[in-house]
Nucleic acid binder design. Sequence first.
DNA 1: ACAATTCTGTTATATTATAACCTAAACTTT
DNA 2: AAAGTTTAGGTTATAATATAACAGAATTGT
Lengths: 159, 159
Amino acid sequence: MTQNVYKQHDHHSCVDEALTRARRLCEQNGQRLTPVRQRVLEMVWANHKPVGAYDLLPKLAEEGFNSAPPTVYRALDFLLDLGLIHRISSLNAFIGCNHPGEDHPSCFFVCRECGKAQELDASLMRSLATKAEQDLGLKVEQQMTELMGLCPACQKEAS
Amino acid sequence: MTQNVYKQHDHHSCVDEALTRARRLCEQNGQRLTPVRQRVLEMVWANHKPVGAYDLLPKLAEEGFNSAPPTVYRALDFLLDLGLIHRISSLNAFIGCNHPGEDHPSCFFVCRECGKAQELDASLMRSLATKAEQDLGLKVEQQMTELMGLCPACQKEAS
DNA sequence: ACAATTCTGTTATATTATAACCTAAACTTT
DNA sequence: AAAGTTTAGGTTATAATATAACAGAATTGT
Ligand SMILES: [Zn+2]
Ligand SMILES: [Zn+2]
Ligand SMILES: [Zn+2]
Ligand SMILES: [Zn+2]
């Protein structure tokens, strides 16, 4: 389920499952997965690498969609609101969520060499938030964590 | 030492201590805390609110410094490299570090109402990194966490 | 069919960040 | 001190990311 993107895997089923979850989530929330939204989601899921908004524009253009920034930002905002994707702030980029529907912090490792991003278990993040709330009286509403470094394959290549 | 920015405190000494630490750190590293760098650091420390690069430009101009983006970005990059400030990616903004010199992840809570940011203890972040390294074979080189919500004072005002 | 809502098209612009090249200042070596 | 080397700052232009505003089309509910 929580798979390792740095290992070989049946990526076709990654995308399939992401789409299935997306359709279900839209249905549950009375939202519409319109063509441009679905296509953007598929593009985000292309290869486990966070993708920038402006990378998507020409791809959408190729397929005959309107190609102006608002189009892609609207689709991305829609997917973000529904929790289908996360935003990697340090890269100004977007990546598919592994378990949409379950409310959770954004928590990713990104390999600086190959660019692939792995969503991590967020339970320690929750502990951090709880601790901050208890120690300092804060009310935490959102949180995100981004780790950077080398994935196993890129460590080997570096040596 | 690790103080609470949401409580009343002698902020003048916050700034003083930040400058003292900065001078010492520069000395240790053979770097120069030039006028523009020092002034940018002071401005970042003005009020515990993350500040954008373009907020600094007019302030520098007022004081007769050159006022073009590269000037402020160079100063910010210098301060980042030396660990004197952190970058809050989700805000495209910069904030003073509470314990420069000690290598540590960037870990902040930001109040969405008053805008003040509190640096948090990063030990749980380190645990998260260690766990990712053990479980997935990753090599973590950098990490950052950003929490958003309401500080104690802004919670009261909301009710 | 009608009204209300949601989604998309389009143009323009705002915001954030960097490239490139040149000059000035500060340290190094002689 | 003079010359060479490195580091920092000035300047102009432009790249990259994101949003505002408004009009028109499609969808939904009645
Ligand atoms: Zn996959
Ligand atoms: Zn997720
Ligand atoms: Zn203070
Ligand atoms: Zn710090």
